[in-house]
């Protein structure tokens, strides 16, 4: 038996990811990009929101999209069909994107100065909260079919987000969901959270979202 001893380590478990995220942030700053990490449950409408957003932005601001899914290239194909370059990451068993995956994807995309890089994270409101990708802001998307207490159930993600989008408001007549209560619940956790209501499907509320994007020029 060798000698036993206690050693001090004092190292952050996600330190490596955090360092890569910081390096991503510097890379994105060189391009003056607005980088948004879009998170939601599966099926809240992230890809539809992006497709509609790209269509409305048109040529006014160059966009690129990193698509994170467990499997299939389907979402990247939908984005390309909407006219923007997209890079698909399949995480396999993984439940989130990390900073290294995003760096590789960003280097494979035709980025344009002053543009927007949307990162569509894997549909999951838990794990992506812990992984900094080097984005400027996390945007949480909820849909009205999910329950207005959802922000209280997933407080870590709400705490980490800058903006919450409440999607599918065209379905409000058919579901028991109070958008004001949902926003109030979210602000119990994050009082500075911005909240917008929209329907990517009908287009209602999309102007306010585009206006929000316009107010955020990108990394300086």
């Amino acid at each position: 038996m060798g000698k036993k001893s206690i050693i001090e380590v004092e190292a952050a478990v996600l330190g490596q990811n955090d360092r890569l995220a910081q390096s991503n942030r510097e890379f994105f700053a060189q391009w003056g990009l607005l980088v948004l990490n879009l998170v939601s449950s599966p099926g809240s409408g992230k890809t539809t929101l992006l497709v509609e957003t790209l269509g409305r932005l048109g040529q006014s601001r160059p966009c690129a999209v990193i698509e994170g899914d467990q499997e299939t290239p389907n979402d990247a194909e939908r984005i390309r069909a909407a006219g923007a370059p997209a890079f698909q990451i399949n995480t396999g068993r993984g439940c989130h994107l990390d900073a290294a995956m995003v760096r590789r994807a960003a280097q494979n995309l035709p980025l344009e100065r002053g543009g927007i890089l949307f990162i569509e994270n894997v549909g999951n409101l838990i794990c992506p909260a812990d992984f900094d990708l080097g984005e400027q802001a996390k945007v949480t998307l909820l849909s009205v079919t999910e329950g207005d207490d959802k922000p209280l159930k997933y407080p870590h993600m709400i705490a980490a987000s800058r903006l919450m989008l409440i999607n599918k408001i065209d379905l409000l007549p058919y579901v028991r969901f109070d958008p004001r209560l949902c926003a109030a619940n979210a602000r119990k956790i994050n009082p500075r959270l911005e909240v917008l209501e929209l329907s990517a499907y009908t287009g209602e509320g999309m102007d306010a979202w585009l206006e929000w994007l316009g107010r955020h020029p990108g990394f300086a």
Binding site: K4, S5, I6, I7, E8, V9, E10, A11, A12, V13, L14, D130, L152, P155, H156, A159, R187, K188, I189, P191
Partner: peptide, 28 residues
């Protein structure tokens, strides 16, 4: 993470940078 302020019952809280997860020490 959801708790009113114990002093004034205020709901608006700012989290002061935590340490996240840290490997503190090991026995080898």
């Amino acid at each position: 993470l959801e708790l009113p302020c114990p002093l004034c019952a205020g709901r608006g809280l700012r989290l002061e940078g935590g340490r996240g997860m840290v490997v503190n020490r090991m026995e080898i």
